[in-house]
């Protein structure tokens, strides 16, 4: 791990290509995720930000090949370097891959922890089911606990109900990292936490990531969490990625009107509050996503005739920065 950290590996921990996930509603199939291409670079945290109904959670489920009916993966591939395309796996090999290649931290970890088993026991179970050495895994678990300022002796012998919300979330992170998967999926890891616990968990994730250089996908609706944690960000709207790039670039020079409006709609502690402008309109629901043309045009202040016809493709607007908008350069405001 240490050597990996030293030399930055120029490869992807996961590549998503042409991913389309549809849901069946009353004899019609609607795309919750439409034609998504996304690379998860090794050793970095890639955020997927979007509102409810943007498809970010469906995307995460597809990365685990765990889309539940009435949903179905209609097209595309999700390739992990060692295991290949997860969408072609099933049964035992699929379960193996979940944990070996990709693991998940849930919004509410208490729902994912076994209430009848001690935390240490759960770590050992995890190791056994993936053919790892339980003792080594337990050592790793202790090490992770220490890094997260958890008392390992106490936590590993506890049941989940004996831990506080923030501690449970840290335990969830520990269990997700203990098998050293290629990608960790963080699904709204701090949303259910209180403000102070949130900042602590963010700090822990940041420190762990800096030290271990794991690759992660962060699913969130909160631009603040993205800014604090993610190296890169993909902005999702109505099932499509409308902008992606390095977090700093997207924050300072957002190109897509949605990203711009989203950032401007966040009240901030610094600066002039009159700069905060609400985003007009409402995000579309699954059944009302326009099937042609730009998905954002109904709320866009810069709508042009061409926006009604064809969804703009993601095109480079700067180094390592893509955006799906026909508009070139913003009117200054």
């Amino acid at each position: 791990m240490a050597t990996q950290a030293a030399t930055r590996v120029e490869q992807n921990a996961c590549s998503i290509r042409g991913l389309t996930v549809v849901y069946r509603v009353e004899r019609h199939e609607y795309a919750a995720v439409q034609d998504v291409d996304l690379d998860i670079p090794s050793g970095e945290i890639t955020a997927v930000i979007g509102e409810s109904g943007s498809g970010k959670t469906t995307l995460a489920m597809a990365m685990l090949n765990a889309v539940q009916p009435p949903g179905r993966i209609a097209a595309g591939s999700v390739v992990y370097p060692t295991a290949g395309d997860i969408l072609r796996l099933s049964g035992k090999r699929l379960r193996r891959l979940r944990g070996d290649s990709i693991s998940m931290v849930f919004q509410t970890s208490q729902n994912s922890l076994n209430p009848l088993k001690r935390i240490g026991g759960q770590a050992m179970d995890l190791a056994r089911s993936h053919g790892r050495d339980p003792r080594g895994t337990l050592r790793e678990a202790r090490d992770l606990c220490a890094k997260m300022s958890l008392d390992a002796d106490r936590v590993l012998t506890s049941y989940q109900h004996e831990l506080s919300g923030g501690m449970r979330q840290r335990v969830g992170i520990m269990l997700a990292l203990v098998l050293q998967p290629e990608v960790v999926l963080l699904d709204e890891p701090t949303t259910a936490l209180d403000v102070l616990s949130q900042s602590e968990v963010l700090q822990i994730l940041r420190d762990l990531q800096r030290e271990r250089r794991f690759s992660a996908v962060l699913i969130t609706h909160d631009m603040g969490v993205v800014a604090e944690l993610a190296d890169r960000v993909a902005v999702m709207y109505a099932g499509r990625i409308v902008e992606r790039g390095r977090t700093r670039d997207v924050l300072i020079r957002p190109d897509h009107p949605y990203t711009r409006a989203l950032i401007r709609s966040i009240p901030r502690l610094s600066g002039d509050l009159s700069e905060a402008v609400p985003l007009p309109g409402l995000p579309p629901s699954l059944t009302t996503i326009p099937d042609h043309g730009c998905v954002f045009r109904a709320r866009c202040a810069y709508r042009m005739p061409i926006c009604d016809t064809v969804q703009p493709p993601l095109e480079s607007v700067g180094p390592d920065h893509d955006s799906a908008c026909y508009l070139e350069g913003f009117p200054s405001d």
Binding site: D194, S199, E200, M223, R248, I266, L269, G271
Partner: peptide, 28 residues
């Protein structure tokens, strides 16, 4: 101060306060 420290900073648009800190443990 700990509440204010906990507010996520839009790094790039904002700079975190120099004295930012995290409280010692969780609220019990």
């Amino acid at each position: 101060q700990s509440l204010l420290s906990a507010v996520p900073v839009l790094v790039g648009l904002e700079r975190p306060g120099p004295d930012r800190f995290i409280p010692l443990e969780e609220l019990v």
